[in-house]
Structures are given as structure tokens and as C-alpha cells.
Amino acid sequence: MRKSRAAYPLTWRVMDMLEAIAARLWPARFARALPYLMLAPAVLLVGILVLGLVQIGDSSLRVLDTSTFLMSEDYTLANYQRALTESFFATVAGRSLLGSVIVTVITLILAFPYAYLMVRTPSSALRNVLLVALFLPFFIGQVVRAYGWLIILGNQGMVNEALGLVGVPPMRLLYNYPAVLFGLIQYMLPFAVLMLAPALTAIPAELEAAASSLGANWLGTFRHVVLPLARPGLVGAGLVVVTLSLTDFAIPAILGGGSQDFIANAIYDQFFRTSDQGMGATLSLLLVAVGSLLVGLVFMLFGAGTLAMTGERK
């Protein structure tokens, strides 16, 4: 008697076959190893990064011989000594660190109400507008955005033209430290909002209503309910913004007018202008170290926020 096709469809047979192949390739007794297998790509990626760091570490211990433009055979700490004693590197490092902290604080202050409004607004139209405004900059690269500011804030730019209409003479709005910080804040704002929004979404609106019904005014509710519960988002957003700002290259290069270098610019100069790979490697490692210390300090003081691995909310 002929079997009914409907009784055992072809798709089931295919699935059975695939399952059989999978069972042969990855027997059930290997099941416990599956999580480790899934980790393999990440381990491989991190391994490559570590290998790169080892090579950079090796380069950092060699000095450039300017008679042959080759790195020295012998190891020395001379590059580290230069990096830690020459005032130029201290100036650039100080500017980068201070800048990243200022950018982080201002960005969080600006991002918080934006994210809060985006999450809490009952108007879907407003939420969509805020979302579009948030994502639009992601389609425009950092360099293009920085050049956009050159057009807007230049001596003959839109802002100065507008000021000219009310009798204010053109003023230099670009090529200084505030211009660099401004550019960084504008660049970092979407990152911060994106990190904050999930944390704010996780705060039940009923809690705010309860605080209000118990007599808390808006400020009290914000201070004692919203802000503490939003801390994981603030920490996560802060970590992302501070590390991206600290290591940024394009904004200081374009909006700084050449006199507001951050550490990344100094690293570029060593690798590509003076051909001193040793010094460039040294500065790179010091930047990694300072960035890691900063992040470690935040972890110790405030926890890992939304970047925490445990899923535990602090």
C-alpha cells in the first residue's frame, strides 16, 4: 500500500535528515561543550587583539635609529621615559583626559532628558521624530559631520552670518578646545541616548506615579526614584562616551585647527610623520592602560551598569 504523503511531509523528512547530520557531526555527548564552541569566535578575536598588543609591546621597547630608520635590536625603556617626562605628551594626555570627562558629563546631561522623553512620551509621532533625529547622524560619518561644523561655524559660516545680521562682527568659533568638545558632544549624544533608553524603559512608570501620589514633586521623584534606577544606564552610557572621547582622532584633528591634539593624534604623528613606531606603540599602550584604569575605576565606584555581565541590576 502506498504511503500517504500528508502523513509524513517532505519538510519533516528534510528536518530529520538535518538532525541526523547534526547528531553525527555534534553527538549528544558533546552538548556540554556547545557554549564553549559558541565562545570560540570571540576567543579567537580577542586572541588576535592580544597578539597585536604583544607585538605593540615589543615595538614599544625599541627605539628608532635615525641613521637607518630601523628599530633597535635591544630592548629599552627609553620610549616610556620620553612619554612620561616630555611636557608635550603630558599636555596632550591631560587635554584628552579632561576633554573626555567634560564631554561625558555634558553628554549625559543632554542625553538623559532626550532619552526620558523618547521613552515616556505618549505621542508615537514625537517618539518617531526623536528616533529619526537620533539615528540620522549614524548615517553620516564622523568626518563628514565634523566638516559640516566647519561650514556652519566657520568665519563665513551660517552662525557668523546670522550674528552679522544683528550687527555682531565675525568671531572665531572653530579651531579651539571648546570647538573640539562641542564636536565630540554632538558625536557622542546618540550613543548615550541609545545606552540610556533601555535603562529608562525598564523603570516602571507606576513607580513615578506612586511617588507622585505619596506627595513627591517632580524634582523629588526624579532625584529619589528615576535617577537611582537609571544608574545602570548612566554608567553604561558614561563608559561608552568616555572611552570613545578619550580615543577620538577625527574631531580634534578637524575642529582643533592643529593645536588641540588628543592622544590618538599624537600616536598617528609618531607612526606616520616621524616614522617612530616604537614611540607610537608606547603611546598606544599607555592609552590602553589609562583607558582601562579609568573604566576599572568606574566599575569599582559605580558597577558596570548596563554593561554588567550578570544581568543583576544594581
Partner: peptide, 18 residues
């Protein structure tokens, strides 16, 4: 120029970035 460029560059940067 080549032998001293690195030092000159560092000095120029030190002045201009200060």
C-alpha cells in the same frame, strides 16, 4: 633634516600644543 626631524617635530609640537 631626516636625522633631526623627529626632535624638531617634537619641539614644534611642544610649543604649539602647550
Amino acid at each position: 633634516q631626516v636625522e633631526n626631524e623627529s626632535q624638531w617635530f617634537a619641539k614644534f609640537k611642544e610649543i604649539m600644543q602647550g
